[in-house]
Computed example of a mutant assay.
Amino acid sequence: MTGLWSPERLPLTLLFVSFIATFVVTRAITRLIRAGKGPFHDNIASGIHVHHSIPGIILTVVGAFSSVAAHGTAPMAAISAVMIGVGTSLVLDEFALLLHLQDVYWAREGQLSVQVVMLTSAALGLLALGIDPLESDGMKRFGHAGLLVSIALQLLCLLVCIRKGKYATAVVGAFLLPVAWIGAIRLARPRSRWARKQYDAGKLTRAKARANGFDARWGRRGLALGDLVAGKPTD
């Protein structure tokens, strides 16, 4: 495994760092605006509130085009990686707003944006550390056959996790296959499509009990961490 700052890994590391830094700075500024403190204020142009996802989209598109044109050569590869990291962070910070097509930034629905950012950060962090979801002993031992079997198995497990409503498990499982296996085998979330179509009343009750126990132990901690970083939503 090469270092995070090695030439071949530098663009991805810069993308990861810029993504995290942009989210932290953006949330700090929006919290100051919400509290009415500091020199910051909403960006209003001709009576329209220009959300920061708009410059985020522009940066992401320009960075993507520049990255393709750079062919991995320095310094443009690093510059485009930073643009993509900053732009993507700005867009995902308002993911819930774009999904609902209304300003739910400080509403309970807005917590979805924080959760998406956290999952994306985890995926980028694993990539920056050099954990390649397409590498496995089977691939090395059996060549192309191992590659095809491993990809097919991995995709199947990930699709099952998603259909079972286990999105965080799917993100981590994309890099650590045993996590996807466990998520695919265990009971689905009770509100997932899998549970609604596949479970009878007894199994659905078991799924609800397991989900309630998990959420009571870990769910509130995740939301509390999100509120600490991103600001507590308005009831």
Rank of each mutant, 00 (worst) to 15 (best):
H100G: 00
H52G: 02
L225M: 12
L134E: 09
G72Q: 12
A128C: 11
R27L: 03
L92W: 07
S18K: 11
P233H: 08
T2W: 03
K166A: 02
R9T: 08
F19A: 03
T88P: 01
L112K: 05
A78S: 14
S150M: 02
M139A: 15
E94M: 11
P75S: 07
P233M: 13
S113L: 11
L4Q: 03
V172S: 00
G143A: 08
E109D: 14
T60F: 15
W5Q: 00
L112T: 12
D93M: 05
F19W: 11
A123K: 12
I54L: 11
T13M: 10
V171P: 00
L14Q: 02
T13L: 09
T73D: 12
A64T: 15
P7I: 00
L90Y: 01
G226C: 04
V116S: 01
G63T: 11
A168R: 00
P11C: 02
G56D: 13
G47T: 02
Q102Y: 01
A21H: 11
T88D: 04
A184C: 01
K197Y: 01
A180S: 06
G183S: 04
L119E: 15
P55T: 03
I79R: 05
R189C: 03
H49K: 14
A216F: 11
F175R: 07
P233R: 13
D200T: 00
S80N: 03
M1W: 08
H41D: 06
V62M: 14
V116T: 06
D215L: 10
I44A: 01
F214T: 11
A152H: 10
S150F: 15
T73V: 06
T205S: 08
H49A: 12
A123G: 13
V117H: 09
H41N: 09
R163Y: 10
K232G: 00
S113A: 15
G231R: 10
F214Y: 14
T60V: 06
P75V: 04
V25Y: 11
Q102D: 12
P133R: 08
E135D: 14
A209D: 14
M83V: 01
A35H: 14
